[in-house]
Amino acid sequence: MQTKRMTFTNNRWLPYLLLAPQVTITLIFFVWPASQALWQSMLRQDPFGLRTTFVWFRNFERLFADPHYLVSMKTTLIFSVSTTLLAMSVSLLFAVMVNRMIRSRDAYTTFLVWPYAVAPAVAGVLWWFIFNPSVGILPYMLRGIGIEWNHRLESSHAMILVVIAAAWKQISYNFLFFLAGLQSIPQSLIEAAAIDGASRSKRFWTIVFPLLSPTTFFLMVVNIVYAMFDTFGVIHATTAGGPAQATNILVYKVYRDGFIGNNLGSSAAQSVVLMGIVIVLTVVQFRWIERRVNY
């Protein structure tokens, strides 16, 4: 890692002083809690909180033998894959369309970027209201085609609701990156293909889409991370994991087991599993960035 060719010298303490605030906060609020989570994941408290015993990896063994946890993993998988697919395909469509515009490009962009500003919890409440079985608009329309919408009882309805709310908020982010990616594709390639007689859809699938793949891959990782970790608000403010655990994703389960169930050992073990997932995803992302540099 490089510095400037010329640096300040004769300041023995100044660089440490400059770094102190950042490093202190990192140590107190990141490194220490993360190590605590590791430690606690190997402890078990008796039901009255009187005695704590060191149990090695038994919390993890229990966790992976717990059907609730496995169901929650599956739920998380379904939730994040659907959210990612929905958010990315819709925003790619928008980006491709906006990229064809010349004069109206900025106007459309303005209309499409602001959902980024809406908090996940607020997005959840908005869609929860629209889908509300008694006063919402969509259930009213769905009734017209014979679907009785009730996300309080129907697991699949609840899942659809949280996926839509989570994906809606993420559209603007993906849209901006896809648009930037599309604009960096040389127009000459597309023109050459057009001269050779490739149709519009053929040009898209054989030239534009492959050239866009670095952006797509990057967004895929970002979206999965978003769906797995940042959507706590969507779940908590609307379905609260229900009905019957149908939307109980891993992040929500950590919170529920730790703060409401007071099962610290299990919650810490779940935290450690999540940290592992985040680290794997980050490594994947950075390896990809390195690869792009060599392109």
């Binding site: 890692m1 950042q22 490093v23 990192t26 140590l27 107190i28 609020f29 990141f30 490194v31 220490w32 809690p33 993360a34 605590q36 989570a37 606690q40 970790f229 940042d230 706590f232 992040v251 950590v254 919170y255 730790g258 703060f259 610290l264 919650s267 810490a268 935290s271 999540l274 940290m275 985040v278 680290i279 980050t282």
Partner: peptide, 22 residues
């Protein structure tokens, strides 16, 4: 540099209980 870099990786959501305790 690496200590600061680590913070990029772990969102609050994954270590809520210990951070709360601190």
């Amino acid at each position: 540099f690496w200590i600061i870099f680590i913070t990029l990786m772990l969102p609050v959501e994954v270590r809520i209980v210990p951070t709360y305790q601190v």
